[in-house]
Computed example of a mutant assay.
Amino acid sequence: MTSGITKSPLLALPGAVPAEGPDEGVAAHYGGLFQEQRALAEGRGFVDLSHRGVVTVTGPDRLAWLHLLLTQHVSALPPQQAADALILSPNGHVEHALYLVDDGTTTWAHVEPGTLPELLKYLESMKFMYRVEVADATAEYALVHLPAGSTAPVEGAAAVRSLPYGTDLFLPRERLAELTAGYGPAAGVWAYEALRVEQHRPRLGFETDHRTIPHEVDWLRTAVHLQKGCYRGQETVARVHNLGKPPRRLVFLHLDGTEESLPPHGTELRLASDPEGRALGFVTSSARHHELGPIALGIVKRNVPVDAVLVAGSVPAAQEVVVPQ
């Protein structure tokens, strides 16, 4: 948020343990990590993601303008249809990830905590003569996630993003304190992250670094439209897709469950057969899953054998392919 960390009122709920790092401001969990995961997997409860930035774009040219800037085809985006999109550097590296929906008059997007100021700066610099207005709506609206299968009400939300893995609500921020009355049990971001890792969904700043291109983390499938016209970085996307192979690839890791601690972000990955050898990649996200046990996502060099057993630090890690070689 542009004015610093805003703590969610749901941190006052019994058992709430504050998250740290990028997710500061909301609860990591409410005293029952696995129970919270099971509730979400069964379509019950909600996740407070009110620490994420919210941006709105209004004006008659908003979709045509965004279409020129984003990797996704949004010039004719139907109302209420969700879309994921990226903003790339001139060299095709991922700079921003936006999670969009248009309500017919306004395009809404949520973004990673702390990234909104730079995003707004870039968007403002690209307005030129287009009839658009860009605004930081984080102080007025908060993001709440409902799991797939949820029957909780969506009335009263300013915008709704419906997705295979759940629903994102842009709710007036003053409604956060009353959520437990109509939305079921609260689940923390640790439960949400465990399911995200299970679903192989990349997260900006976790699965990405300064040189990530969309192909490496499976965003080519969900956040890039390969048939649309020019946007910044499009040449790299097309060249790698048509003529080459990405230098790295995202993998899903089953971690040895006998270890007490999870390997943190940045833990180097090596071959289990050569644990003192050179690093072949690093852990990007790790979590404890209610069914799968300790799991992680990682980035490895493209030529790492897909059947190779790895070690994350000292933790054995069996890999599953997410992005093919």
Rank of each mutant, 00 (worst) to 15 (best):
98 L>E: 04
170 F>P: 00
113 P>K: 02
77 L>T: 01
143 L>V: 14
168 D>M: 08
122 Y>L: 14
133 E>H: 13
87 I>L: 11
99 Y>V: 11
148 A>T: 09
90 P>V: 12
69 L>F: 07
101 V>F: 06
159 A>L: 11
94 V>Y: 01
178 E>R: 11
170 F>L: 04
116 L>I: 06
56 T>H: 07
109 A>T: 10
149 G>V: 03
97 A>E: 10
127 K>R: 15
75 S>N: 11
142 A>W: 00
83 A>V: 13
129 M>P: 08
142 A>D: 00
107 T>W: 03
186 A>K: 02
99 Y>M: 15
65 W>M: 02
183 Y>D: 02
80 Q>E: 15
105 T>R: 15
92 G>H: 04
60 P>G: 14
121 K>V: 09
129 M>Q: 12
106 T>S: 10
162 S>Y: 09
131 R>N: 13
134 V>Y: 00
102 D>A: 10
58 T>A: 14
178 E>A: 15
140 E>L: 07
123 L>V: 06
106 T>G: 12
113 P>H: 01
166 G>R: 03
55 V>F: 04
149 G>H: 05
57 V>H: 03
130 Y>I: 05
91 N>H: 12
129 M>F: 15
164 P>G: 05
84 D>Y: 12
166 G>N: 06
115 T>W: 08
146 L>G: 03
60 P>R: 10
91 N>I: 11
143 L>H: 07
150 S>H: 10
134 V>K: 00
129 M>L: 12
182 G>H: 05
81 Q>M: 15
110 H>L: 09
174 E>G: 15
100 L>K: 07
74 V>G: 03
69 L>V: 08
64 A>I: 03
87 I>A: 03
120 L>N: 07
68 L>K: 13
95 E>W: 11
103 D>M: 06
143 L>E: 06
138 T>C: 03
169 L>H: 00
152 A>S: 14
67 H>M: 04
73 H>G: 08
130 Y>P: 00
141 Y>Q: 10
117 P>E: 05
166 G>W: 03
59 G>E: 08
69 L>G: 06
